[in-house]
């Protein structure tokens, strides 16, 4: 089994790193939305609640603003930070494409079908 770090598949390495960041981002927004909304939307007196831009202030701070920020983070994360990896794998025909071996067999595979059309 290879043991040198440079030999790891770059899509795997990038994907794993990005997945970790995504989980942290999810956790951060989950904490912000639920804790902020609880503090200002659940525990204060509803009859004295104020509104801003037409929505209750806890919605503005606990949902609307994080939503705007999360959208911005997603745009920046996906367009600027995510690696633009080459996803094409070993050239194989679609499994079971009419003459496909069962899983685990060593039968050789053929070139992929070229009839790809844009959807």
């Amino acid at each position: 089994m290879p043991n040198a770090e440079p030999d790891l598949d770059p899509v795997f390495v990038h994907g794993r790193r990005e997945a970790k960041w995504i989980l942290w981002i999810w956790l951060g927004f989950a904490a912000w939305c639920t804790l902020y909304s609880y503090q200002f939307g659940y525990t204060s007196n509803p009859e004295t609640m104020t509104s801003f831009w037409g929505m209750p202030t806890w919605v503005l701070g606990g949902v609307f603003l994080p939503w705007i920020l999360a959208t911005a983070v997603t745009v920046v994360f996906s367009l600027s930070w995510m690696a633009d990896d080459d996803l094409s794998g070993e050239a194989v025909e679609e499994v079971g494409g009419g003459n496909t071996p069962r899983a685990g067999s060593n039968k050789p595979r053929h070139e992929p079908d070229e009839a790809a059309h844009d959807a």
Binding site: L23, S37, V63
Partner: peptide
Amino acid sequence: SLWIASYMVVPLCGMGLL
């Protein structure tokens, strides 16, 4: 709005994780 709030990160999680 809080019930549905996590749709703010659905594109990130739904597409980016896997």
